[in-house]
Amino acid sequence: MQVTLEHTSSSQVATALVKARHASGSPAMDMVLTLIVVCDDETVADALKAATILSTEHPARVIGVILGKGTGSPDMHAKIRVGSETSGESILLRMSGRLVKHAESAVMPLLLPDSPVVVWWPGQAPARPAEDAIGALGTRRLTDAEAASQPLRSLRSSARAYAPGDTDLSWTRLTPWRALLAAALDQVRSPVTGALIEAGPGNPVGVLLESWLEDRLGVDVRWTRTETDRIHRVLLETDAGEVCIERGDDDSATFSVPGATARTVPLPTRSLAELLAEDLRRLDPDEIYGATVAHLLEA
């Protein structure tokens, strides 16, 4: 069911939530986390849709926060949705006036007791996510460099401000590539002597891959620029021969390792909801990501 509240406060929202939950016949709460989505009018629709799909794997209280104009008298409108087709519940808070600078005060009373809090900026993220007032509420913070106006700059900036619990969705997008490369080395079982990435110049996913490979393998990674943005091909030189993974169409790649014929493997382009689902599977800091961005800044 849906409830709309105008000119409201957090305590009215909380009361309405309990009422709505009772009305939809399920007063029990089996939600495992709170997901705060800090967005604007442009990103809100897609972001909340992804968060709702996500709720089927990780039942969550989703709190969408839209920050309006920061001047004038403080005001807040809320839209609440409970039950109806999905597990979990969602609240959309639209704030304006001086409240915008103190948005965390409106969000804090609505967090689920004890359970983890994840903050996600689907668009432009603050320069220092962990020190942001809403970001500080979270144990995990998700930024998305690809959604920023200058992806690489945004990635480097969040790398500089890295605090345990931060990750960028570019890192999540990289997982299938990393899985294939690791599987290739499982098979080849031979030390890597060099590596090459073919990708678009401004691609944050490629930059993270380069940094990860350098950090893990201790070799220099060469880079060939391509026309398309995404990663096109990755090559690892080993004593036993060359490992090559090359993207074919949208959801597959050609996988070749020494001593076996090349074959097609799935390399799907994943939806926002699938990316988020991967991220929320573990809510502790991603140390490998930490090491990778640390290396990125050294290089």
Partner: peptide, 25 residues
């Protein structure tokens, strides 16, 4: 574990829990 003693896959790390445990060949 899918690897044996002599070669340790440098791309795998127990802390890297995003990488799925893929069966060996």
């Amino acid at each position: 574990s899918t690897t044996t003693a002599e070669f340790v896959n440098p791309l795998r790390d127990p802390q890297d829990r995003r990488l799925p445990q893929i069966a060996g060949p």
